[in-house]
Design a protein around this nucleic acid. Structure first.
Lengths: 214, 214
DNA sequence: TCCAGGCTGGACTAAACGTCCAGAGGTCGA
DNA sequence: TCGACCTCTGGACGTTTAGTCCAGCCTGGA
């Protein structure tokens, strides 16, 4: 991006670059033009948006000098499921006229992953003496699913198809489906219909069978 | 802090407040005056420094417009041992004259703690939940039946009705019948027909249900 | 011999398993 | 905005496994 193409960009670029640098690869910094409602510049872009693309900032009131000029942090959702924390600031020139809008989008995923591990680590605190046999096999299902969710930092509802396949592979390996009534329980735990469960299982078994023969 | 006391503060305050808000309690945002080398304003102060205090920024070259205008991230150490990641940006007005210096100090302690937990967590290679369901549960059946046979010194074919009831009680307690296809296997092992097996089981369950209520 | 109790195969119902499909919703590129 | 495409879903359906039931068969004891 050409930081000298617009006086506003020249003015604000150092601050934007500084934030982008500080927050490493996990934050996107965007400078918007409130008049044309288009993007002036982007640092660390997280999507394919670039200068000139529409801003989609309609909700911010940039005209009233007495209005709020810092918004957020509020939550945004990216198409791939990543959750962002966003803040916006209305940047004014010496006449108090809004000259630009600064947005910082921080990817919370790595933080959530760390937090999930931390809380999971702290919570149990009961080193439960491993029972010789699992009385309640459904607990084992919960355990396997929970471990996966903690690993990838996404709640069950937002697992991708691939995630679910991976979880099923683990459950399959644990012979969970050798016990009666397991399928409906697993489907419920995975927040998926029984049909889908069997569909995923078929896919999984087909591909693992292919692995065998190759 | 009075955000209107200085035109530079008025100009930059929204951006500073936005950063301070986004990074929660772990980041301090400081706006310095490069001319007097004093602090103009602080958001989320991590020490007792305030406006008017000396900046101690001597090393930054703010006079040469062609010089680098973003510094860091570099490491700082607080008196109490906390480690900070810091970035600085030289903010220029429309004449390219340095009007302020922005510093963001991020406390790395919580991140390092999380990282330490993560690496410690990854190291021991999670003691994979042992196969509580043996790959071959029928082995367990053999084991339980064999143990009983050894106890009473009679081969399987010569077990009495009471013996079989006792064995079934143990198998039942081991949740053997919760696994699919268990009944025929047990019947075969006990040298008994499927019908008899279910008959014995019914008898067993009836009497144990009676025990419950008595 | 006859009887009583237990075992057996087989018939049958119930429940769980697994498959299939049409429709609803969501995504993405034109 | 539209349509092609993909995935999930609930429900229908056929199959397998789980349980029940029963008439007939053995066996041991009176």
């Amino acid at each position: 991006m050409d930081e000298n193409s617009d006086p506003r960009v020249r003015t604000w670029a150092p601050a934007c670059r500084a934030i982008a640098l500080l927050l490493g690869p996990y934050a996107e910094v965007v400078l918007h033009d409130p008049v044309t409602d288009r993007i002036l510049a982007v640092w660390n872009p997280m999507t394919s948006r670039g200068p000139g693309d529409p801003s989609l900032l309609g909700e911010l009131d940039t005209l009233d000098p007495t209005a709020q000029d810092v918004f957020g942090p509020y939550e945004k959702l990216l198409a791939d499921g990543r959750r962002l924390s966003s803040v916006s600031a209305v940047l004014r020139d010496e006449d108090d006229k809004a000259s630009a809008v600064l947005c910082v989008n921080l990817d919370r995923t790595p933080l959530e992953q760390a937090a999930a591990v931390l809380s999971a680590f702290g919570a149990p605190s009961a080193p439960r003496p491993e029972p010789l046999f699992e009385q309640d096999w459904s607990e084992r299902v919960q355990h396997i699913v929970g471990a996966y969710v903690r690993e990838c930092g996404r709640p069950v509802e937002r697992l991708t198809r691939q995630d679910r396949l991976a979880v099923l592979a683990r459950l399959e390996e644990a012979k969970v489906f050798a016990v009666r009534r397991a399928a409906p329980v697993v489907a419920g735990t995975l927040r998926v219909s029984r049909s889908t469960l069997y569909g995923l299982l078929a896919e999984l078994r087909a591909s693992s069978a292919k692995d065998q023969t190759s």
